[in-house]
Design a binder for these strands. Sequence first.
RNA 1: GCCGGUAUAACUCAGUUGGUAGAGUAGCUGAUUUGUAAUCAGCCUGUCGGCGGUUCGAGUCCGUCUACCGGCUCCA
Length: 635
Amino acid sequence: MINITFPDHSVRQFESGVTPLEIAKSLSEGLARNVLSAKVNGKMWDAMRPVNEDATIQLFTWDDPEGKATFWHSSAHLMAEAIEALYKGVKFGIGPAVDAGFYYDIDTGDITLTEADLVAIEKKMLVDVSKAEALKYFTEKGDEYKEELISELEDGTITYYKCGNFTDLCRGPHIPNTSFIKAVKLTSLAGAYWRGDEKRKQLTRVYGITFPKQKELEEYLVLLEEAKKRDHRKLGRELELFMFSDTVGKGLPIWLPKGTELRLRLQEYLTKIQKEYGYEQVITPHIGGKQLYVTSGHWDHYGEDSFRPITTPEEGEEYLLKPMNCPHHCMIFKWKPRSYKDLPFRCAEFGTVYRYEQSGELHGLTRVRSFTQDDAHIFCRPDQVKEEFIRVMEIIEIIFKALDFKNFEAQISLRDPNDHEKYVGSDENWAKAEAAIQEACAEKGLPAHVEYGEAAFYGPKLDFMVKDALGRKWQLGTIQVDYNLPERFDLTYIGADNEKHRPVMVHRAPFGSMERFVAVLLEHCAGEFPLWLAPDQVIILPVSEKYLDFAKNLQSYLKKSDIRALIDERNEKIGRKIRDAEMKKYPYMLIVGEKEAAENQVSVRKHGQVDLGTMPTEAFAELIRKQVEEEQNKR
RNA sequence: GCCGGUAUAACUCAGUUGGUAGAGUAGCUGAUUUGUAAUCAGCCUGUCGGCGGUUCGAGUCCGUCUACCGGCUCCA
């Protein structure tokens, strides 16, 4: 007999060799019907795999993320089996579960899969299946991808699965029976490099998702449609915030008047906070001499993947569109001798930069070739680094709070421990910089996960990652500790000992870029901006043309009170004006007719709500002022 | 850059097996003067993404380029 410990710490005895499924059955028939996989002593486990020793056990169903992962992983195998049956001679790479569904990377040889094939595969998948074992199979079959994976596994740890006629090398676990899978949707086809290496062969990746009930698939598809409605590219056009033009060039966003209004509000807000935090604003040119980037190391690292240098016609001098602001700011630091008493020097700029992003990477406002960073560089003494770092974290905290960004992930981006070639600077400096970030996070109590290989070439970063409407992760805010650029630019300050010392740089951008931030903000609020940011805060709706004069007086009064108001002057009925104003998501509607004009009042209607009643115009202006103040002070 | 897909009016989309393009919305004009989510009538709108080819004839078939969409790779 063995002792099985459950998550509630209760212990029960079972025969050695008992399976999780049998354990579930002893608890309840219903549970047994729904168990997909288990965790035994911390290891993922098949529901039908015997347990031979004392163990703690967790049982997973569709309601657990682990259960879903098992379900989808098995679905990937089911799909592979269907593909193998339909297309002879295809070879299989990997087929894992992902956040929403699964994929399988496949070498299809001479065959090109198209979307029509996906339907055929879906059908085939829902026919039959079972499970068993085998191994030399892959060599005999000549599947070099699986062979490579096998060769890296320790002997005795290899498990593999057979699914109908399809046999796979796999760590499992799998669901007890593929009849659990009742609904299949293969969602997309894509190329994917084998093992993520661009130099190796590109396989065909098939994405899909499955469910235990047809209804759940339908609900998922509806949810997807809803998410697409929040797409910032769609909302950006509908709300007239920004545009692109093939003639201007791809990846070069153009901010329309309403989008500019929104962006300026964000910039104003951050500028105010930065003043409180001792920043000084600067402005630098959009181009810089090539030598600047040779010195910084950027030319070495990105020169080939940048816009080509601009040259002067007579002298042939080379200038680069600036891809970042730090070298310019270093020159500002160098401009005059600095004393230890002057530090930290916090140099801020909304700096527009230009980067040659691969054409396939461009994506709405989130990945562009020209964007404006809410950039700043803090030049400080080594003993000030941690405090300065924490003060930047505070600024990011204030901003994320003001905008209700709750679901961000903090990521500590460190060097790739296996590839120091990619980075500049001494190990000693890197160690200091990486330690500073980790200490600051610990001190601030910020939960952050470490990601290796994600550092900038000159230093480690703390990145704030946020997901968009479709679950894609984007880096917004970033703070970077840099011991290297001060050395490369030979920056110095005079210390209390009257000797020269090397300052440390902190690069930071709370929004990241105005473009990406606005994109993610748009998707988060689905275009319903908080009042303080809305390009148009109030729309005045005259009941008929007779009240246009009153509406115009009201508008100029509101504008004097620093409230952004417009008038729907169309010759339409009030119901129509309200409907259109609702669809444009204006935060407030003011309905004015005979009664209001006579008494200098306004009837207030808030977006998404009903009639809020009538109030004097002064009272309304005060209400707006108060709400804006509250929204900006959620510290 | 790579793989797959898409491209028809300002927007959202129809357009059979090749026979020279249509709807709704928006816009414009007029009537109506409106009280909390669509008033009515009329009018206008296109190099069918560009270029080339097949054909008596191409929005439709083929090639190519461009842009966009979904991924991969990259992201100072």
